[in-house]
Every structure is written in C-alpha cells, then in structure tokens.
C-alpha cells in the first residue's frame, strides 16, 4: 500500500454563524489523483483552502508526515512550500515576468541558487509549453497560458502534494483542453494531486478516487467508476444525473 501523506480528521470551519465544513474526514496517499466534486457552495474550495491553511480551520486535525499542522508551534510556511496550490483565478504575480514567477519561490523561500532555479524553472516551463514566454508579463498572457505558468510555478517548489482549486473554471472551452492536458501529464508522472473540479469526464479519466461533497461533508467517496457510473448516495445520483445520462 502506498504511503499516507495527509490525513484530515473531523475538520470544521465556519464563517460567522455560517458553518461551511461540518467535520470532514479525508485521506491522501502518495501518488493519489483525487478529485472532489459537488455543487457550488458545498464547501469544496473551503476544504481545499483549509488543507493549505489559507483558511484556518476552527477544529479538527490535518496530519502531514505524522505531525498536526494546526498545532501552534508548527511552521506553516514550510508546510505550505510542500503543498502547492493552483488557483481558479491563476494569481500569477503581476509585477514579475513568467520566469521570475517560477523562480521567486525556490530562491526566496527554499533559498536555492538563482541560476539553478532558473534552469529548473525553464524545464517546467517547457513541460507546460511556455518556455517561449519566459520574459512575458502575466498581463500579456491568455487565461490558459497563465494557468499553465501557475502550474509550472507550483511545480518548481517540488511539492509533495499539489492542490487544484477549479483550475479550469475561468477558462473558455478551448483553453480548458490545454490545461487539462498538462494536468493529465502530471498525473501520469505520479504527482499526488487533489483537484476540485466540475470536469466530470476529466475526473473519470485521470483520478483514482473521487469524493462527492455536499453541505459541508463528504457524502460519498470511492473509485471513479463507482461514484460516477454507479453512485449509491441519493444526493450524488441527483447531482450526477445529467453526466450519467450523457455517458450512457
């Protein structure tokens, strides 16, 4: 069995009196490509943001390599540098060019040699087919290009896990393909990923497990074939109705 990387136990998060996460349990093993699906407002994004502590959970545990990252003395910044994130709105650093976006992390956070970081960054940029844009500023790029750079930026940190928060939702149908292709490549290389997505076909193709979230809890979890083709939970069935009809 592959090694466990992150286990999450009864994670809760509220904004004011609005309870978003009502005790989520989740396990991620090395090499997992896990998709999280569910209706808008079900807490998927909040859950992902809690994993990388962009939102601080109210209670529960996030165990990473045997340690609870929610403990007061835990070095959050170091943890974050190991758990990368790709955002829906790309969030490239607007003041830096493409190459600098990919080197600022390794150089300033990981304290790596600038020249070596450039080489590594260029390697990842060519992997996402963006090496020709190394000197471009983010505002000169299209959405799909930005997202590919954002993925390269996350990869240069050599993360243990990469989180994707609806990476294709802000893109048009044509550019969605470019980004999904890059993500498929990453999956085939064995990178551990947690992906919040509405791309059911993609989820079915690349993931080895899918969780369906609704109302702040994980309703159903399992192999893509179980969840997408043959869901047991009533809520999952309703949510996936159109997809299942379309498939068959």
């Amino acid at each position: 069995m592959s090694k466990n990387i992150i286990s999450i136990r009864s994670l809760k998060k509220s904004f004011g009196c609005n309870e978003i996460l009502k005790g989520v349990n989740y396990e991620i093993n090395e090499g997992d490509v896990a998709c999280i699906i569910g209706p808008s407002g079900s807490g998927k994004s909040t859950f992902l943001r809690c994993i990388n502590l962009l939102e601080r959970p109210d209670s529960g545990e996030i165990i990473y390599e045997g340690k609870n990252v929610l403990a007061e003395e835990y070095n959050v910044n170091q943890y974050r540098s190991k758990v990368g994130m790709v955002f829906q709105q790309f969030n490239l650093f607007n003041n830096l060019n493409v190459l600098e976006n990919c080197t600022v992390g390794p150089v300033k956070v990981l304290k790596k040699d600038p020249e070596e970081s450039k080489k590594i960054a260029m390697k990842f940029l060519s992997q996402v087919q963006m090496s020709g844009f190394a000197d471009a500023k983010p505002k000169q790029l299209s959405g799909g290009q930005k997202q590919r750079v954002a993925i390269a930026r996350a990869l240069t940190m050599n993360p243990k896990v990469l989180l994707f928060d609806e990476p294709t939702s802000a893109l048009d149908p044509e550019t969605v393909g470019e980004v999904l292709k890059v993500m498929k490549n990453l999956a085939s290389l064995g990178l551990t990923m947690i992906i919040v997505t509405h791309e059911m076909a993609f989820a079915k193709d690349v993931s080895n497990k899918i969780a369906f979230m609704d109302g702040g809890v994980i309703c159903e979890e399992g192999h893509p074939n179980e969840i997408l083709v043959n869901p047991k939970n009533e809520r999952t069935k309703n949510f996936l109705f159109r997809f299942i009809v379309g498939e068959s």
């Binding site: 962009l54 910044n77 974050r80 994130m85 955002f87 650093f93 003041n95 830096l96 600022v104 992390g105």
Partner: peptide, 26 residues
C-alpha cells in the same frame, strides 16, 4: 487582489516576504 497574497503564501512565503516581493512592488 487578495489572490496575490494567497498565491505568495501558497508557495510558503512569510507575510513580509510576500509584501516585499509581491504586494509592495505592485
């Protein structure tokens, strides 16, 4: 945009690193 600070934090930057390299230049 809030996303700039979040992206900086997501690659492990401290508040001050994020300010110096990302937020303040903009």
């Amino acid at each position: 945009d809030m996303g700039q600070m979040e992206a900086a934090k997501s690659i492990g930057m401290s508040h001050w690193q994020a300010m110096i390299y990302v937020i303040l230049p903009q």
